[in-house]
Design a protein around this nucleic acid. Structure first.
Lengths: 233, 233
DNA sequence: AGAATTTTTATAAAACATTTACGAACCTTT
DNA sequence: AAAGGTTCGTAAATGTTTTATAAAAATTCT
């Protein structure tokens, strides 16, 4: 759907950052590393990560200072990672603005779960502001969250494959879409030759969408090339 | 306007709850105690706390189940407190919707700091969703306080799992809910593949809710995807 | 132990994707 | 302009996966 989530790691010990970077990367995150608080703030400025994992003790601006600085300008989740397990230190970090505090040595699975939890929260908060994603073109209105299509106000039920095809068409209105493009997009690279699929599914969509399926108005054929979706009005 | 923040403590061990209650109260919070998950959900509907601190192992609906049930209807911060320190357990709890996991024995100052951190977030995000004790949509009316469902005025008895499923459906009217979503929300992440559960429980709900269970009107199936709840009128 | 509930198992029915078939329309070549 | 080959639209046959339902087995609660 959208881009990978961005995580900024701040630590001056290469052994730690190497492990973290690899693990987070393989779990689908986009990762960058900064070796102290100052570098972290710079990276924050021009990369705008979704979450920060930082060590506490570092040369220069340390983890506590980094928390305060980040909190002054952002609400992104911060997870502090530290060898120090004293309660006093934890309280300091949390009150400085950290969202979570994990003591080294730590289990990678736990850290990943805590990262998921933190990101889940910010995701939820974002979703409250943004209305559910809707593709609206011409006579068509497709609510991605509800998985619903309406044409000129009346709802049309689509099977999964029909729906996938429709999403692709609506996402590229007016453009000529080659057989190849559509087949790889909806059926995957293995089915590039199966133009029959397209014929039957386009036919099915037309039956459901068009007033006169025989002389289509929305899904137009580009002979020898592919199809084109004209959303109308 | 400057009401106290409300914290709900869920634990069946009086020694723990007594300490927590006193400590949190002296730190300016408004505190209530529930001794199991079921009581917690009732108090939630009744009192709408700002944060929940819960034990993991309890008789009846345990901490994990409580997390899932709360997450189905609210985004309030949940802190899990447990003697169990295994990584797997932590991951389970966090993925079930917990925001934080603290291992007993714990330092009171740390817990307080973690509570402050959690509350700070929700304050900042202004996620003050007024959790109404009654969900009322279409022909349905679900009272969270006494766990009662009425359809078109007549009461329907539901078993615990049926109830959980119903709560989730009613909380997301009109949306297509994938098998995956429903299974993780109600049975937890371990049961993502057990679509049979869904089939039998949806069937059971239909028998109780629908006039004609064979041609359902409220709980609609979206083949290959999941189900959709249409609350009617 | 007995009742209620959840989980597992089995089977028939339904929804859907894929494949096949064939006539019509279209291009190319002669 | 006619023949041969190709693409396109449509309907229908086939096969696979998913769903509905009942009922047995296991678990949990009282």
């Amino acid at each position: 759907m959208n881009d990978k989530q961005r995580i900024l790691i701040v630590d001056d010990e290469p052994q730690i950052t190497r492990v973290l970077r690899r693990s987070l990367t393989t779990h689908g995150y986009d990762v960058r590393v900064a070796s102290d608080g100052l570098a972290a703030l710079q990276t924050f400025g021009d990369w705008s990560p979704d979450l920060v994992v930082t060590d506490l003790s570092m040369p220069g601006t340390d983890g506590l200072q980094l928390c305060r600085n980040l909190r002054a300008i952002s609400q992104l989740p911060i997870i502090v990672l530290s060898v120090r397990g004293e309660e006093r230190t934890k309280v300091q970090a949390l009150d400085a603005g950290a969202d979570d505090y994990v003591t080294k040595p730590f289990g990678m699975d736990e850290l990943l779960a805590r990262i998921r939890a933190a990101l889940r929260r910010t995701q939820a908060a974002k979703l409250d502001d943004v209305a559910s994603p809707v593709l609206e073109v011409g006579d068509f209105r497709l609510d991605l969250e509800d998985r619903r299509l309406t044409v000129k106000g009346s709802e049309v039920h689509l099977t999964p494959k029909e729906y996938d095809l429709m999403v692709y068409l609506i996402s590229h209105p007016g453009k000529v879409l080659t057989h190849h493009t559509l087949l790889t997009a909806i059926w995957g690279g293995d089915s590039v030759e199966q133009t029959e699929y397209l014929r039957v599914f386009v036919g099915q969509l037309r039956k459901k969408i068009e007033q006169q399926p025989a002389t289509p108005r929305y899904i137009l054929t580009e002979p020898w090339i592919g199809y084109r979706f004209d959303p109308g009005s």
